[in-house]
Nucleic acid binder design. Structure first.
Length: 587
RNA sequence: GGUCCCGUAGCUCAGCUGGAUAGAGCAACUGCCUUCUAAGCAGUAGGUCUUUGGUUCGAAUCCAAACGGGAUCACCA
């Protein structure tokens, strides 16, 4: 809509002799209760027009009608200049802009971005919180790709540490040689089972020690199980053959389980990083930071950074015994990623409980003057809470990812069968449809909310399939496809004289898709896409209800409506694709 | 206690780069299937936008404070 703002700049210059920038103009969509498609707020211009907002609006409106071909009419209500563009303009927009396949796909912008997401621990299966993370990361990657970035999806797997050793130890003690094959239990769930067993037995020991007179803290430290786990971690670090072998075996089980879960979720990665390879990184950066005077060493040999001037605290970056802490390896990993990909931006999809950590990490890398440090971004999302509060894996109050997905598909099956709409479907088609709808409902439910807001999930209340939901949008798509499949659309431009209100509204909304993608990309928020696609589907249904496509008054109008419907289906499909949601041809 | 995030209809959320009478969905109530899929459409009802100040022609939106909720402040990850 540049041609409008350009013309307004000229109008203000000619009418009032004042130079303004295009960005000074407040151009918005006209609210539906008023006539017109575009609205300019005229209050800001009264400074140099020395007239009332109404009179100013009239001045500019008359100028636009006289000088801009596509401006057909205007009306002024208070300080709002509503502009009506010619139907021929909107028709042209539909045919030459919206319908071509390039619509909603931006040319490469020459920038590379890494999106790190998922980043699971390998001691237990994924839960609902991970689902939010995975869907966000995947969707943001899709959105950035559509916006013109070259995207690298990365997964930093936390495959080592005390938590893994806990599962390993418990399996050694109580596992009786169980394997996923022998039990039929999915690998990640099997390993998670032993993580829970460890915790149960550990708690027993703590209680026993407390009964023997130790304090809580003492008991936690002295329990034999935790000591054995720590010893195992030490052996792992020393490369002990037996420990390494068990570690590889059990991690292997977990990876095959994760692969299934990722497949069900529909997410994937271009690059894996493993903490077992990266946990020692970062020490050279410590040296570099000491040389540059960014870090300082205390008497005991520990290394710190003083961030008090930035409103933060002093932060340890290397222990006195010379070993790394979490942030040390994150510095190293950031460097490793940059060396691998030289990306312009690097997004970390991590929960908001780590806000402080990333604030510190990014600040350190900036102070070190690291390349790429300015492109770092923590996509911080809110926790998923249950009505009972926070999910705790150790307390068993988690919503398991695999269970939840299975339930969603099951619910989709029940709903669909109730509606009796799958008569002509093969079994395979039915399975596919249930999965599409169930996952669509779940994904849309999680992605429509602003990432930074915490999310309440009530397992007792099923995710809706009606209203502001994924299935509503999927249904709209299926409806359109059903109409289109009945006829051969001619796919060529037709000229119609006058658009109906809904038709024009639909083109206006469709036309907004590219800027919505840019907005979502700039804010790293799939919610913007989700809400846009919903608005579009809602509007299409209104159109569908008001205007018959196949029984249009004449052939030209029918062809136009078919094209309008086709454009709507395409944008719905692309938009849902950016959310990682499939849309069915029939449902 | 310090820092950060959040607070909009009974519930779940949009709107937040300041602009018109604050919008959806769910739940409740009313209509609409002999017409392209009723997982739909149309309508009724539901709001001190947590509160109080400030900036402005104009504040849900920006600023400050208070209140409420959450997170975080380890030689854990």
């Amino acid at each position: 809509m540049n041609f409008i703002t350009e013309a307004v700049v000229k109008a203000v210059k000619q009418l009032y002799g004042t130079d303004i920038a295009q960005t000074d103009i407040n151009l918005q969509e006209t609210r539906k209760e008023f006539e017109g498609q575009l609205t300019i707020v005229t209050f800001p211009f009264t400074r140099f027009s020395k007239k009332s907002p109404e009179q100013t609006g009239n001045d500019i409106g008359e100028y636009l009608v006289a000088n801009v071909t596509d401006v057909e009419a205007f009306n002024v209500i208070k300080g709002f200049l509503n502009i009506c563009l010619a139907d021929s303009f909107w028709l042209n927009t539909l045919y030459s802009h919206i319908l071509p396949d390039t619509f909603g796909v931006f040319a490469p912008n020459g920038q590379r971005v890494m999106v790190e997401y998922s980043s699971p621990n390998t001691n237990k299966p994924l839960h609902l919180g991970h689902i939010r993370n995975n869907l966000l990361g995947y969707s943001v990657a899709q959105i950035l790709a559509a916006a013109g970035y070259e995207v690298v999806k990365a997964n930093l797997v936390n495959d080592r540490g005390i938590h893994i050793c806990k599962s390993m130890l418990a399996w050694q003690k109580w596992g009786n040689g169980e394997t996923p094959e022998s039990t039929g239990i999915k690998g990640d769930h099997l390993v998670g089972k032993y993580y829970v067993i460890f915790d149960k037995e550990y708690k027993k020991q703590i209680e026993q020690l407390k009964a023997d007179g130790q304090t809580e803290d003492e008991a936690k430290k002295n329990a034999s199980l935790i000591r054995e786990a720590q010893l195992m971690l030490l052996k792992w670090e020393q490369g002990d053959d037996d420990v390494i072998s068990l570690w590889k075996t059990m991690n292997g089980w977990v990876y095959s389980g994760f692969a299934d879960t990722y497949k069900s979720l529909g997410v994937d990665f271009d690059q894996y990083y493993y903490e077992s390879n990266t946990y020692l990184l970062g020490k050279d950066i410590i040296e570099e930071g000491l040389e540059k005077g960014v870090f300082f060493k205390k008497e005991d040999g520990s290394v710190w950074i003083d961030l008090t001037a930035d409103g933060l605290d002093q932060k340890l970056v290397l222990r006195s015994d010379g070993t790394s802490v979490y942030i040390t390896q994150d510095m190293g990993t950031a460097q490793l990623k940059y060396n691998d990909f030289r990306m312009d931006k690097s997004i970390y999809v991590v929960g908001n409980e780590q806000d402080y950590h990333f604030k510190v990490l990014f600040l350190i890398l900036q102070k070190l003057g690291k390349a790429g440090a300015d492109g770092l971004f923590h996509l911080s999302y809110g926790m998923v809470d249950l009505p009972s509060g926070k999910m705790k894996s150790r307390e068993g109050t988690v919503v398991d990812a695999d269970d939840l997905m299975a339930e969603m598909v099951q619910t989709a099956r029940e709903r669909t069968e109730e509606l009796g709409k799958v008569d002509g479907f093969s079994d395979e088609e039915k399975q596919m449809l249930y999965k599409t709808i169930g996952m669509g409902a779940l994904k849309f439910f999680l992605l429509k909310v602003d990432p930074k807001k915490r999310l309440l999930f009530d397992p007792n209340e099923s995710v809706d399939f009606q209203g502001h939901t994924g299935p509503f949008i999927q249904y709209t798509h299926a409806r359109i496809r059903s109409v289109l499949n009945r006829v051969d659309a001619e796919n060529k431009r037709v000229e119609i004289v006058e658009l109906a209100g809904v038709e024009r509204d639909l083109i206006v909304v469709l036309n907004r898709f590219p800027e919505v993608i840019q907005e979502a990309a700039a804010g790293y928020t799939p919610a913007v896409i989700a809400n846009y696609v919903y608005d579009l589907a809602k509007l299409f249904n209104k159109f569908y209800h008001e205007k018959s496509i196949l029984q249009a008054e004449d052939e030209t109008l029918k062809q136009f409506r078919l094209q309008l419907a086709a454009a709507s289906a395409k944008v719905i499909k692309k938009g849902m694709g950016l959310l990682g949601i499939m849309v069915p041809e029939r449902m």
